[in-house]
Deep mutational scan, measured.
Amino acid sequence: NQESVVAAVLIPINTALTVGMMTTRVVSPTGIPAEDIPRLISMQVNQVVPMGTTLMPDMVKGYAP
């Protein structure tokens, strides 16, 4: 099972992602793959992401799977 990126904290809208904001977990449905965390650093979320929420591609500005 592939791990997906999950919010480790509440991430406010338009916040640039940092390593500490993200964790990984096997979830269903799957979100952004864990191995993409290095690509996500400094990208901004386009909505509020509650802690424990799986990051989906459409939540991150400029992210393309």
Rank of each mutant, 00 (worst) to 15 (best):
N1Q: 14
N1R: 05
N1C: 03
E3H: 12
E3N: 15
E3L: 15
S4Y: 04
S4F: 05
S4H: 02
V5N: 01
A7Q: 01
A7D: 00
A7W: 02
A7R: 00
A7L: 02
A7F: 02
A7Y: 01
A8D: 14
V9L: 13
V9M: 13
V9Y: 09
V9T: 14
L10E: 13
L10I: 10
I11P: 00
P12T: 06
P12I: 03
P12W: 07
I13C: 03
I13L: 13
I13G: 08
I13S: 08
N14D: 11
N14L: 07
N14T: 04
T15K: 12
T15D: 08
A16R: 14
A16K: 12
A16D: 06
L17E: 00
L17G: 00
L17N: 00
T18S: 06
T18K: 13
T18P: 00
T18A: 12
T18D: 14
V19G: 13
V19L: 10
V19W: 15
G20Y: 05
G20P: 10
G20S: 12
G20F: 08
G20N: 13
M21H: 14
M22K: 01
M22D: 01
M22E: 01
M22T: 04
T23G: 15
T24H: 08
T24D: 02
T24P: 05
T24G: 12
T24S: 12
R25I: 05
R25V: 05
V27R: 09
V27K: 07
V27G: 10
V27L: 06
S28N: 14
S28M: 11
S28V: 14
S28H: 15
P29N: 05
P29W: 04
T30Q: 12
T30A: 07
G31E: 02
G31F: 02
G31C: 03
I32Q: 00
I32H: 01
P33D: 05
A34Q: 07
A34Y: 06
A34K: 10
E35W: 09
E35Q: 15
E35S: 13
D36W: 04
D36F: 13
I37Y: 09
I37K: 11
I37Q: 14
P38N: 12
P38Q: 11
R39L: 05
R39T: 09
L40Q: 00
L40S: 00
I41N: 05
I41G: 03
I41P: 02
M43N: 04
Q44C: 03
Q44W: 09
Q44T: 10
Q44S: 08
V45M: 05
V45R: 00
V45F: 01
V45T: 09
V45Q: 01
V45D: 00
N46C: 03
N46F: 04
N46E: 09
Q47R: 12
V48F: 13
V48L: 14
V48D: 07
V49A: 04
V49H: 01
V49R: 02
V49F: 01
V49L: 13
P50W: 07
P50I: 06
P50N: 12
M51D: 07
M51N: 09
M51Q: 10
M51I: 11
G52D: 09
G52F: 07
G52I: 02
G52P: 01
G52L: 06
T53V: 13
T53I: 07
T54Y: 03
T54C: 03
T54R: 04
T54K: 04
L55T: 01
L55M: 10
L55W: 01
L55E: 01
M56K: 09
P57H: 08
D58S: 14
D58K: 12
M59N: 03
M59K: 02
M59E: 01
V60D: 00
V60C: 02
K61T: 12
K61H: 07
G62P: 08
G62W: 06
Y63K: 05
Y63E: 04
Y63T: 03
Y63C: 03
A64Q: 08
A64K: 15
A64V: 15
A64C: 04
A64E: 09
P65Y: 02
